[in-house]
């Protein structure tokens, strides 16, 4: 005779045994995870039962890091990529930006396409990046004589407007996500610039440039480099390496640039700058 089947039948003992086993397993897991293991701390006394449970659930935390004494505060920038910042940048007015940009043409070229190795091409650069650099110049987080004065003269809205204007210009930098990742560019690549740009050098902790600067991948704050003035790229790499320029959030560029040799910096600059208009070599 077949037994009655089903998870809630009482005349068959096995469903009951099954339910109790699962409940017991959960209870044992909770006790082991929350209390036995959760209360254990290396280099410290065992936590009480309720402290361990509350800490594990995030209700209470007995670590109070914010009140500990800190070295003098040092920040790379005032900008963080929060929703509020992005909204402010997105609110840039291109028409007014074009008017503000009349101040930029003398150095950064007609419509932001630089003709000098001293100054970066701005046409096609992401608006957020232009906005951040202007704020860094204004706050003294990045230094370049004339730019600090010019940025101080601009209002926050002017900066967002002019950033929106340059971001919309063509004939400048290549779009950061414009081409697909090129396969077959590996660590065995003979050309040093291509190798560093697409594979990096893991032995020295150098990630590929393309992982943030494109093509195929992007990161807030990382500008497109294809089409930038090679002299400018090289000088910025050197400035990051020497700590002259320190406005990169979380030391991302300083850490990488420190590992590069001058020859590698030059090769990368030439590789990315190969699409730029002929230079006067003023900035070398």
């Amino acid at each position: 005779m077949a037994r009655e089947q089903g998870p809630f039948k009482t005349d068959n003992p096995w469903p009951r045994i099954g339910w109790w086993s699962v409940a017991g397993l959960l209870a044992a897991g909770a006790v082991l995870g929350f209390v036995v293991l959760g209360g254990e701390q290396q280099n410290g006394p065992r936590l009480g039962t309720w402290t361990a449970i509350c800490r594990a659930l995030g209700i209470a935390s007995d670590t109070g890091p914010a009140t500990a004494p800190q070295p003098p505060l040092q920040t790379p920038t005032r900008i963080a990529w929060t929703a509020a910042t992005l909204a402010r940048i997105a609110g840039g007015d291109v028409k007014h930006g074009e008017f503000v940009a009349l101040n930029c043409a003398a150095c950064h070229g007609e419509q932001g396409v630089s003709q000098s190795g001293l100054f970066p091409t701005l046409a096609g650069m992401d608006a957020g990046i232009i906005y951040k650099q202007l704020d860094d110049f204004r706050a003294g987080k990045r230094s370049w004589g004339a730019m600090n004065a010019i940025a101080t003269a601009l209002s926050d809205q002017d900066a967002a407007d002019v950033a929106a204007y340059f971001a919309g210009r063509v004939n400048g930098l290549a779009p950061i996500l414009g081409e697909n990742f090129h396969g077959g560019r590996t660590l065995r690549e003979a050309d040093v610039a291509t190798r560093l740009a697409f594979a990096g050098d893991p032995a020295r902790g150098i990630p590929p440039c393309a992982a943030c600067h494109g093509p195929s991948a992007s990161k807030p704050g990382a500008p497109s480099l294809k089409g930038q003035r090679p002299e400018y790229i090289e000088r910025q790499l050197a400035a990051f390496a020497q700590g002259i320029r320190q406005n990169d959030i979380n030391r991302q560029m300083r850490t990488v640039a420190m590992q590069l040799t001058p020859d590698e910096m030059h090769a990368i600059a030439v590789y990315y700058g190969s699409g730029a208009a002929p230079a006067e070599l003023a900035g070398r």
């Binding site: 036995v36 293991l37 959760g38 209360g39 254990e40 701390q41 290396q42 936590l47 361990a52 800490r55 594990a56 659930l57 995030g58 935390s61 007995d62 670590t63 890091p65 914010a66 500990a68 800190q70 070295p71 003098p72 505060l73 040092q74 920040t75 790379p76 920038t77 005032r78 963080a80 990529w81 929060t82 959030i249 979380n250 030391r251």
Partner: peptide, 30 residues
Amino acid sequence: GLADALHPASNVEVVDPRTLHLAGEFVESN
């Protein structure tokens, strides 16, 4: 877990990842 201290951190602490560099415990100078 008990003998080799191989266990996950037993506390939950939240922090805003976008503003780490501006203030708080994880600023560059700290």
